[in-house]
Nucleic acid binder design. Structure first.
Lengths: 207, 207
DNA sequence: TGTTGTACTACCCATAAGGGTAGTTTTAAT
DNA sequence: ATTAAAACTACCCTTATGGGTAGTACAACA
């Protein structure tokens, strides 16, 4: 049985192009409905029961990211493939955080789009090279923290404005130990005071 | 002589609708060119020499906000009126920061659009009620800072990780004066150390 | 004219913070 | 069993920080 697809896209031409492409070039998918806004798509969701949603981001009314969030809540097993003109990191991360399965750009060619559908069906997460780089970079950053667990704890408390003594009490070690950790934090972050350490750690995503 | 208008809008229908509206309903404006992306508009800017640019935000390639910035640089006296579907604060502020003269939403009716053009010509800054509220709110927040100018300067330097001495040198006052300002900052923000002061001031938008 | 807000200077004092050095213990990997 | 990293404790010393108090100078405002 063919996988059911719905398209949420406010540009009629793009909508038709995708539909035509999917209906003619493959036998594995069938576009059962198209919508030009999230609201309409959501109200028919329970009757459509799509396997895959092709979702635009810039939509009148509710945007595609919020739409993604709501579809996810309603049908957690449905895959949502974002097809957007935006390649900036914020959109990509927001979309992925909202529960999008993949994120490809509108300038992708036909082969790439169909490949993306197959990837989604196979449990993959298709995204363009550029997008993939952004995502990889974000993950690398998260795991790249040079700080040990303890140091991260200390730095978080420092960021709250706590004194060495406060921190010592809170994590049940001596004041000198806190000092020791902070000295190491400064070394690793190449800074020499609390403010710089907190600012740098925040900007690098360590805390 | 009629004011020269160019339209930057990727949707042909909207483009045509605006053009028709302006050409038929008024004698004060004339649409001399339409573009569906910023790049094309920019390359003809010096020959078009428009008085007013009607600018969409979601455009293929360069977005309308960046486009606004570049048109401003090239023709500072040209007014740019953003016509967008987005009503969220970030877009509005980014657009206004980029140098947009006004910001109206696409669901504005014909009368409102023409009124906006007249307002722009008269040196005004047309925006919908909702948008205006956002802007007003942002200004209220900005002027709500309890800190004096000097205190704000000091706090900004403090936020960079500078010591009292560093700050004193930088703003050419004594270390004790810096201390004095910082004491007042702590009082006003109800905090008792640098980190808390910086964190609070940042979250409240004072720095 | 006097008041108020802002900016500034100058002390005192106790504690916090930053930097150096020297170790022990725990835990995880080889 | 050995090593290495992480976590921890302790001491020294100097400077930075924060809090208190007491003033002066100047411009805006009533």
């Amino acid at each position: 049985m063919r996988k059911k697809i719905i398209i949420v896209e406010d540009n009629k031409d793009v909508q038709e192009a995708f539909k035509l492409l999917i209906e003619t070039k493959t036998n594995d998918y069938s576009v059962i409905n198209t919508y030009d806004n999230c609201e309409d798509a959501l109200s028919n969701l329970k009757s459509d029961l799509p396997d895959i949603v092709l979702m635009d981001i810039d939509l009148p009314g509710m945007n595609g990211i919020e739409g993604t969030r709501q579809i996810r809540q309603s049908l957690p097993k449905t895959d949502i493939l974002i097809i957007s003109v935006h390649e900036n990191s914020q959109y990509v991360f927001d979309a992925l955080c909202a529960g999008a399965t993949g994120y490809i750009t509108k300038n992708s060619n036909h082969t790439q789009l169909l490949k993306a559908l197959d990837e989604v069906s196979a449990g993959g997460a298709p995204m363009s090279t550029h997008i993939a780089k952004l995502v990889v970079k974000s993950f690398r950053r998260e795991s790249e923290s040079p700080l040990t667990g303890r140091e991260t704890d200390v730095l978080n408390l420092l960021a709250e404005g706590k004194s060495y003594m406060d921190i010592a009490d809170q994590i049940s070690v001596s004041k000198d130990t806190v000092k020791f950790h902070i000295k190491n934090i400064y070394l690793k972050l190449q800074v020499s005071n609390k403010i710089e350490a907190v600012t740098k750690a925040k900007s690098e995503g360590f805390i």
